[in-house]
Amino acid sequence: MQHKSFGEMQCAIARSLERVGEWWSILILRDAFHGLTRFNQFQESLGIAPNMLARRLNSLVDAGLLERRRYCERPPRDEYFLTERGRDFRPVLWALVAWGNRHFSPDGHTLDIVDAKTGAVADPVLVDRLSGRPLEAPAFRVVAGPAAADPLRARYAARSAQSEEGSRA
């Protein structure tokens, strides 16, 4: 079954999901961060069908998150490496680890993010790079950006007006 494409939507979340929204894609990226590069390594780690893995790897290459490099001509074999765009996904994965640990780990954490020098467990938060302040509501909110089309601007303007009205009540 073919899903709707989000690639041309105005929303940055939708555009991002077009590239990594299929769960196998995120798990492949996770494994790539752990140093896996070869088809058989991904397949062994994930237990994924070969045809599905090939589609997901091709999709991640097409999205510019992985780079394919040939390491054997006969038979043709490729390795997959994170690109700069792919490496930029690391904070998203770490946020998922922290969120999953907080909400879906009844038996305790299976993964922790730690300081590489001290081994101290980290508690990741998303912060504004300019101010260093945690990105938390109500101090921060989402607004339409400069490239937003009029319908998106109108939708966010209406939400902003509603939230201002609610804060006055």
Score class of each variant (00 low, 15 high):
110 T>L: 12
59 S>E: 11
53 L>D: 15
104 F>W: 14
82 L>P: 00
93 L>T: 05
108 G>A: 00
96 L>S: 13
86 G>W: 07
54 A>Y: 11
82 L>Y: 02
90 R>Q: 13
30 R>N: 06
48 I>F: 07
95 A>G: 12
56 R>W: 08
37 T>A: 01
47 G>H: 07
33 F>Y: 04
79 E>C: 06
100 G>T: 15
77 R>V: 03
80 Y>H: 03
76 P>H: 04
91 P>R: 07
108 G>N: 00
82 L>H: 03
75 P>K: 00
46 L>I: 06
50 P>H: 11
90 R>L: 15
65 L>N: 02
31 D>W: 10
61 V>N: 04
68 R>G: 01
48 I>Q: 12
33 F>P: 05
88 D>F: 12
45 S>D: 11
68 R>H: 02
82 L>V: 05
72 C>E: 13
36 L>C: 08
108 G>K: 00
50 P>D: 12
109 H>I: 04
68 R>I: 02
86 G>P: 09
42 F>E: 06
58 N>L: 11
109 H>W: 06
38 R>W: 03
31 D>Y: 10
89 F>L: 14
99 W>S: 12
89 F>P: 07
108 G>T: 01
72 C>R: 13
92 V>Y: 13
70 R>F: 09
98 A>G: 10
86 G>Q: 09
31 D>N: 11
83 T>Y: 02
106 P>I: 01
49 A>M: 15
84 E>K: 07
110 T>P: 06
79 E>W: 02
78 D>V: 09
110 T>W: 11
76 P>K: 08
81 F>H: 14
66 L>D: 01
35 G>V: 00
85 R>S: 15
68 R>W: 01
63 A>P: 03
81 F>N: 06
54 A>G: 09
76 P>G: 02
42 F>V: 05
75 P>E: 04
